[in-house]
Design a protein around this nucleic acid. Sequence first.
RNA 1: GUGAGUGUAGCUCAGUUGGUUAGAGCACUAGGUUGUGGUCCUAGGGGUCGCGGGUUCGAAUCCCGUCACUCACCCCA
Length: 436
Amino acid sequence: MKIPPVKGTRDLYPELLAPIRRIFDVWRDVSIRHGFEEYDGPTLEYLDLYREKSGEELVGQLYRLTDSGGRELALRPEMTPTLARMVAARINALPKPIKWFCIPTLFRGENVQRGRLREFFQWNVDVIGSADVVADAEVILVGVEALRELGLTSADFAVHISNRRLMAAMLNAAGIPEDRHGVAYALMDKFGKLDPVEFDRHWDTAFGSHLLSAQLRDMMSSSDLDAVESLPGGRNSKELREAAAETRRLMELLANFGITEFCRIDFRVVRGLAYYTGPVFEFYDRSEKERAICGGGRYDDLLGKMGKSREPAVGFGMGDVVLSLLLEEKGLLQTGRKQQVVFVLDAEESLRPTLLRVVAGLRRRGVPTEFAYSWQAIGKQLKLADKKGVSAVIMLGADSTNPQLVRIKRMAGGQEREVALDELLADPRRVLEQDW
RNA sequence: GUGAGUGUAGCUCAGUUGGUUAGAGCACUAGGUUGUGGUCCUAGGGGUCGCGGGUUCGAAUCCCGUCACUCACCCCA
């Protein structure tokens, strides 16, 4: 019986895993360079952790199971609840701000389609314990730097920035009651998909104010902070002016960090889940054909709901699936072998013991080394070396008059040179990297 | 959940109005090549034609059902 991989999962063969590993390396490297520490948590959590935090929508997508002790568990669909628990447990002991990152495997029982799987990797970067908008800016900086490191430029992607506080203030100023804000957000989230007439009609039906609808549309397409304050009631709203000021400051900080070219205000960014309280952002490819590469924002109230003390926090998640699609489109997905492997061969079978000694010696000195398990003619061994994609071959017994001489052959150009075996083993990296 | 499309070798795909033993390219294995890889040539392995039923002397091909996958919609980190 043939059992296929589970829907929405991937069999990551070496050539498929290689480019993903490359992405992980960049994520990790950039995180550490920006002062973040890596953490991880369990893949399995109590179902209640998500029930309490995420509401029924996400719980409906959970992979749940009952263990042999009758505990109701779930495969983690996101990292934030775990992070919140871990931080809450040590909140008094950890120096603030806490800057942590993580590259977890996540599971969601969603419909599978382009850019969306049921098991995927997601880079999480969070700052906890600072209410300063500079933390928001730094988190965005980390995300931008990682994409730059992967070869993307401002011609390829942009960070679309909005602010939940600003939107709330705006709606308040327009006289829309708090309990209707959810309806408004849902509509604003659809702004990009609806044409103006439809948008007006939906807005009118919900709020009965066609005028506001038109102004909202202007504002959402203008990306202009000043336009916000010209909304009905805007000039008199302290809340709104403050939120606008916060957003302006964020843009200034991003300019100070030197990434203005990547960042733009975009009030179409609302973001699905309800726990965001301040600036929110999404990274999109410039064509906006793909789903968001990355999304995040400030969630000052979430940790308070998880633990005892309220802690301001900001962070984002960046999945590997959409990012890989984009990198592939741009021809930036690393597919070839990058590893520099050498292959040791012996001209005669009697040299096998020497070969094994040389192989072990090279490996001990940090040189990735391969060899043929059974002796074959030089031509066959070279063929094998070629298939393995090695960068160089070290030939033992190449000179029958002097057993101390080995010949090093570069596979790319085919050049060969001879070197003493002792010299090679003394400092193989130097010998192998040296020009000749 | 809704709609559309696609299922033939590991991959990409041919396969005539239904007709002998289902093919090609790539990939894989081996040989040509007993002191030098890539190119080239030759050979080989690999298929329950997604699955089940029906029509027929005969089904990869026609019909019905079913399953899987892909894309889109809905929804949404």
